[in-house]
Design a protein around this nucleic acid. Structure first.
Lengths: 106, 106
DNA sequence: TATATTTGCAACCGAATAGTTTCATAATTA
DNA sequence: TAATTATGAAACTATTCGGTTGCAAATATA
């Protein structure tokens, strides 16, 4: 059973859940109200998100509030870094090219 | 058939392929040599990556060179932006807290 | 032209995935 | 205490996924 952050964000419902609880902690019931799916299905998504430590939970009476472990999201950013270097280089090359073109011939 | 960039990068082999061809265009055969899998399996991965426009191909005789569409990678970065705002806020809050602690009491 | 090389695609298989239904547990409320 | 509410987990299903094997097409080479 593969369980990493990239597999976790592959599902569109999970991405929506992540975006939702990024702003404020929510209970599974409250989260489910935002989607066309059952509470149980949301519960399963939350379990997957918990397993890769993307969310944390806080029990309050019989309710459980789920919120995003924002630090974990940085791992995606970190993976992107290797490509960021490339696209910034390409951009600056394009930039150089454009400014060369714009330079009026004397 | 779901086919978006997030589903594309969910697979570790595909992430490795992406990293590989980010540096230089490569043929399917050459790519496959880097993994413990068959050429056909790599071919399937390349098809998935092509379908969501993450790679482009250039035919050269009977060989096909695959390379990364680096711009497409920015979509992940764009999705991360909504969270970046949050984690930067948290960081600056922590920063403020730390500097408050460090401030010598008069 | 005959052979070898590079490649994509279809068929198949076992495992994983997302979702539903049902049930058990724990906390709250009447 | 009895009923209600909030939740997780188990069992089941249809679909998708990643991989392999086998084959066909196109290009290059002998």
């Amino acid at each position: 059973m593969r369980r990493d952050i990239f597999q976790a964000i592959a599902d569109p419902t999970r991405r929506a859940i992540i975006a939702l609880i990024a702003l404020q902690a929510m209970t599974p019931n409250a989260i489910a109200e935002n989607f066309h799916t059952t509470r149980q299905s949301v519960s399963k998504h939350l379990r997957i998100l918990s397993e890769c430590e993307l969310v944390k939970q806080e029990q309050q009476g019989r309710e459980i509030y789920y919120s995003l472990e924002i630090d974990k999201m940085k791992e995606i950013d970190k993976w992107l870094n290797q490509f960021r270097e490339i696209w910034e280089t390409r951009f600056s090359q394009l930039d150089t090219l454009l400014s060369t073109i714009k330079t009026p011939k004397k």
